[in-house]
Design a protein around this nucleic acid. Structure first.
Length: 875
DNA sequence: CTCTACCCT
DNA sequence: ACGACAGGGTAGAGT
């Protein structure tokens, strides 16, 4: 016989525990979810750890139980179950059913009694049982075969009561727990016990006499007159209390242990409940663990070569890579699907076929792809240009909803109703275990992706049309993908020697500062460890901690700056941090990313990641190369043109976000300021402080600048007070003054929040959307965040729209003018090119022209540019 | 893997 | 009273 393990759960008790252990969470429909959530977490954890073969969740049925006939006031005076909890019980039950777990309740009996009865049955047969509850009373059920798990604070933290553990904790046997309850009573169940006898006395008495009955027989020998008197006066009550505390082990239940077989969950049902309740974390996790997701079968052919006859005018094609770093990753194979037939060809074999390469480069033969930028980059690596990319699943899904958490094909397919793609993790494994599966499995996986692309195309295109986003998708994102791919493949040249020299210099400086710090601290320690540093500064040296983090003292730069005058060590630490950051992230980090073949860095732009429509840059991130401080800015000297006698040419939009704001809110003064090309921060200072241009001090301008930034981000007095280092009150006054000075801005902010509440989303100039379900939340934080997002996203997102359009226009213009100039980088409001010197003159004309003309606003766009022998010199 | 810190627009 | 300004990426420490 296989070893059986029976898990019995006290549903009511656990739901109560979860409810009070967790904050009152609720989903977007206002249904409270904390008890269900906590219950689920606990359930998941315990099932994973115990692997039970049998399971049951017992519930209390109704208010009256057989115990009430013994004692009418049993459980009297108990608080009514809060409605926020009651409303969750149906979900708990639904969830248990979805998990395929039996549940049971019985008129007149409590969950304890059902559990007790089943325990006894199982125990008699010698079966292993685990009881889970939040109620310590159940520890009386512990036996050699039965362990009782009681939740401690929280819900997943568990204390395991074996008879030994009971003995250890109380010095009693599990059955004596009942006697203990009889003597001491239980306030929560309104069991009286003997007044004046608490846990300590009860245990002492029971150690001596063994049970309530024996105690009363030997009452004479009890020491202490007062105690004896109390016991004597309450004999009946003590005996009744013991009866009340006794869990019934012979309840007339209609289930028996064999009915409780557990066969695993119906994950579809479980996840659909999770979805209903918005359990995002669990949903995400489940995608990683789900083992058997896929259902339908696929038939396919594995080819050794690509024949012309299989290549159609419209095909889904997927290039399966080992990892997402497609510039360096191995191409594992190519899947093709024409709506009927599926093919797979291993590795880069396909590129050996002239027919295939010709088909790939034929614009009139339409390709449907998962990620056209990656596919184009890989093709380019094989010296073929992929043309005719007609559908890009990644981009389409991103435009439809930029908040989707992950853009692997499996997730996207699921999001839009196709469940037939496995996750990459599922196929390859994760972490150190990641490996390419056998050919059949690999082919099937790739083909499922190609098929998903084919099947999802109409769904997504329809959705894009409905949302009036087809143009954004087709005329902006899709062509931009090709341009970005080219920029990535072209890469930017880096002069390693410049980095190396800086590295040596930095290293020297770091060693010196390190020594100073150790001397000042009086000991050596790891300066890079905030924990160790905190101990040194705030315990050893005795500085006053101004701020704390979750885990200890905050040693963040803004905190340390305030302490700078207190001790000499602080400024050294700040310098050490600055230089250390340059060394590790930029000198060492960038050096690692230089490709040996061409001495270039090929970053990857993530085109479907940010919720606002911006790009992001990884491996490495070239959008955060230092500029603010001169020491860091020097890093830019390493970024050079890839040909001698060429220059770096950089152009950036001036105040693009504030111009977008002016366009959208149509505030008279703001629009006017840009139409007259005024210094916007000075102008703001003039209006907010009611002074003339000449009277604006540098502090006033600085404050105005911070307010302008704040406005763009969806301002709060707290945020502004932080950036200006002023009190919240002062910040609030500033904001009020600003909004009074620019009433159009105030109206815009109010309107956009109202619009977001009404539609559930906000949009940018090119109809990019961001959904904000939390805008109606009753949780202050969630709602406030959504409100700020509503104000910020149209501004940041529209600015992103503009530069994306500019990049497309720019690429076309460079081609039309037959220039050699290459667009290399995009840094949100800035484009960086490399150009032969002869082309500088024309760039000076066309770059501003194209960028400023990308999208017409009611205020002009302004572009500034500079060029020089390195990126550093483009200032 | 999470946290802290710090770099950018 | 509480919370605590938008969007990102990377490195190092410590669990």
């Amino acid at each position: 016989m296989t070893s059986e393990k029976i898990l019995l759960l006290d549903g009511n008790s656990l739901a109560y525990r979860a409810f009070f252990a967790l904050p009152l969470l609720s989903n977007e429909h206002g249904i409270h979810t904390n008890a269900v959530y906590g219950f689920t977490l606990m359930l998941q954890k315990i099932m994973e750890e115990e692997n039970p073969t049998h399971m049951l969740v017992a519930f209390d049925a109704g208010k009256t139980t057989f115990r009430h006939s013994t004692f009418g006031e049993y459980k009297g005076g108990r608080q009514k179950t809060p409605p926020e909890l009651s409303e969750q019980f149906p979900y708990v039950r639904k969830l248990i059913d979805a998990y395929g777990i039996k549940r049971y309740e019985l008129e007149m009996y409590e969950a304890d009694d059902i559990i007790g009865t089943l325990c006894k049955q199982a125990d008699e047969k010698g079966q292993q049982v685990i009881v889970v509850s939040g109620d310590k009373d159940l520890t009386q059920l512990a036996t050699e075969n039965t362990t009782v798990y009681i939740t401690r604070k929280g819900i997943t933290d568990i204390e395991k009561y074996t008879p030994e553990h009971v003995e250890e904790k109380y010095g009693l046997t599990p059955l004596q727990i009942i006697d203990m309850k009889g003597l001491m009573g239980d306030a929560s169940d309104n069991i009286p016990g003997v007044p004046g006898v608490g846990e300590k006395t009860a245990i002492k008495l029971l150690k001596e006499h063994g049970s309530v009955e024996n105690l009363y027989q030997a009452l004479g020998s009890v020491s202490g007159a007062k105690l004896k008197e109390k016991l004597m006066a309450n004999e009946e009550q003590a005996k009744m209390s013991k009866v009340l505390a006794t869990i019934e082990t012979n309840a007339p239940i209609e289930v028996n242990v064999d009915d409780l077989t557990y066969n695993g969950p119906n994950m579809d049902e479980v996840t659909s409940i999770w979805k209903e309740l918005s359990f995002k974390t669990l949903l995400e996790k489940s995608e990683h663990v789900t083992e058997e997701q896929t259902t339908s079968e696929v038939t396919f052919e594995i080819l050794d070569e690509v024949k012309k006859s299989i290549l159609k005018d419209k095909m889904a094609i997927h290039l399966e890579m080992f990892n997402e770093q497609y510039h360096t990753s191995e191409l594992l194979g190519i899947a093709l699907y024409d709506g009927e037939q599926s093919y797979f060809i291993s590795g880069s074999l396909a590129f050996e076929s002239a027919d295939f390469c010709e088909w790939l480069g034929d614009e009139s033969r339409r390709k449907y792809l998962v990620d056209s930028k990656a596919a184009q980059a890989v093709s380019r690596k094989h010296n073929v240009s992929l043309l005719g990319a007609d559908f890009d699943l990644l981009l389409a899904a991103y435009i439809v909803n930029p908040s989707i958490s992950s853009y692997d094909v499996s997730t996207m397919a699921k999001e839009f109703g196709n469940y037939d793609v496995l996750t990459d993790e599922n196929v390859y494994g994760k972490g150190a275990k990641k490996a390419t599966p056998n050919l059949d499995k690999l082919a099937e996986h790739a083909i499922r992706k190609a098929q998903a692309v084919w099947k999802l195309k109409p769904t997504l295109e329809k959705k894009l049309e409905e949302n009036e986003q087809y143009a954004l998708y087709k005329d902006i994102e899709l062509p931009l993908a090709s341009i970005l791919g080219t920029m990535e493949s072209d890469g930017v040249k880096v002069d390693v020697d410049v980095l190396k020299e800086m590295g040596v210099d930095l290293n020297q400086k770091l060693r010196a500062i390190e020594k100073d710090i150790y001397t000042l601290a009086g000991q050596e320690f790891n300066i890079n460890s905030p924990k160790q540093l905190g101990v040194i500064l705030f315990e050893k040296i005795g500085l006053t901690p101004l701020k704390k983090t979750k885990t200890g003292y905050s040693t963040a730069a803004d905190v340390l700056e305030k302490l700078e005058s207190e001790h000499e060590i602080i400024s050294h630490i700040l310098t050490y941090r600055t230089l250390g950051k340059l060394q590790s992230t930029y000198i060492e980090g960038l050096t690692k990313e230089i490709h040996g073949k061409d001495q270039k860095i090929h970053t990857r732009y993530q085109q479907a990641l940010t919720t606002t429509g911006r790009l992001s840059s990884i491996n490495p991130n070239l959008q955060n190369i230092p500029i603010r401080l001169e020491e860091g800015r020097k890093i830019r000297k390493a970024f050079v043109p890839s040909h001698p006698d060429w220059v770096m040419f950089a152009a950036d939009y001036s105040q693009i976000e504030l111009r977008v704001l002016a366009h959208m809110c149509e505030d008279e003064k703001l629009v006017d300021a840009f139409n007259h090309d005024m210094d916007i921060h000075t102008k703001t200072a003039m209006d907010v402080f009611h002074v003339g241009k000449e009277e604006v001090t540098s502090d006033m301008r600085r404050a105005a600048k911070a307010v302008n930034f704040g406005i763009v981000y969806g301002i709060s007095d707290y945020g502004l007070s932080q950036s200006l280092n002023i009190t919240r009150k002062e910040a609030a006054t500033f904001i009020d003054q600003y909004l009074n000075s620019f009433p159009g801005v105030k109206d815009y902010m109010d309107d956009i929040v109202r619009e977001a509440k009404h539609n559930g989303y906000v949009t940018t100039i090119l109809k990019r959307r961001r959904y904000l379900p939390e805008i109606t939340s009753s949780n202050f934080n969630l709602r406030s965040f959504a409100e700020r997002t509503a104000m910020n996203t149209p501004i940041q997102g529209s600015a992103a729209d503009i530069i994306k359009k500019a990049m497309i226009d720019m690429a076309k213009r460079l081609k039309d003018e037959n220039l050699q100039t290459k667009m290399l980088l995009q840094v949100h409001d800035e484009l960086i090119f490399e150009a032969p010197k002869e082309e500088i003159a024309i760039l000076e004309k066309i770059v501003p022209e194209v960028m400023e003309g990308a999208i017409k606003l009611i205020v002009p766009l302004k572009v500034e540019y500079a060029y020089g022998p390195s990126w550093y010199d483009t200032k």
